[in-house]
Design a protein around this nucleic acid. Structure first.
Lengths: 108, 108
DNA sequence: AAAAGTGGTTTGTCATGCAAACCTGTCTGC
DNA sequence: GCAGACAGGTTTGCATGACAAACCACTTTT
């Protein structure tokens, strides 16, 4: 908890696209790959890679199956993923707080 | 303002180290290179590169001079830099708000 | 005047982000 | 029933990015 608030940000989580994935995944038990793709405005290739990074980091799990005859991929947030998201939010809040409550030694 | 909050994040600003630089630079009229280096826990080479990115983006200016006989480099936040930081914070707040006030259709 | 320190920049390397190309299977028209 | 369009992703290729090591210029110490 020492140093600047930004030093406690995790590079895996603190990334525009992945932060979006985690945030959306938190809202429901599972999220469709395609929903993420359109909501975040990504190409499938790009999303596929970010999903792989998050899965490798243990922050999400990936479920493959069928909806009728159509192949589907669903994303689930893990416990670790939920915690990582909370940590990120805590760090961001600390940063925002510091920005909005500057220490009184700022010379203009 | 459509899409997910994360889609309005700027990749130049939304980066751990650069966010730290901008946040610190906002606190004072100018900041020493070395202060940034130690506060953010970076190597000089790494910081030098991030400073170059921010300068090229017009978010900071770089002042070189002497303090006594010692070479010094100072960083100043520009108007655009201040605005970019405000935009980032606004987007982060929107994200945090959404995470803490989930829409009521979440099926557990 | 050699050595150690200060203050950074440039270089080299590996990781990352991204879209194009590709692959597997499905539906539709003919 | 099979050619072509479509759905749903994955893999590949490339350009950029992040990082530390090596380096450069100058200063202070011994």
């Amino acid at each position: 908890m020492n140093g600047h608030p930004t030093t406690s940000l995790d590079d895996v989580v603190h990334q525009r696209v992945r932060l979006g994935i985690l945030a959306i995944a938190k809202e429901a038990r599972r999220v469709e790959f395609t929903f993420l793709r359109t909501t975040l405005g990504l190409t499938a290739g790009n999303l596929s890679q970010h999903v792989a990074v998050l899965e490798k980091a243990g922050l999400i799990t990936v479920e493959k199956g069928y909806e009728g005859r159509r192949a589907r991929t669903w994303i689930h947030l893990t416990k670790a993923g939920k915690q990582a998201l909370l940590d990120e939010v805590a760090a961001l809040k600390a940063l925002i707080h510091q920005l909005e409550n500057p220490p009184p030694d700022a010379p203009q």
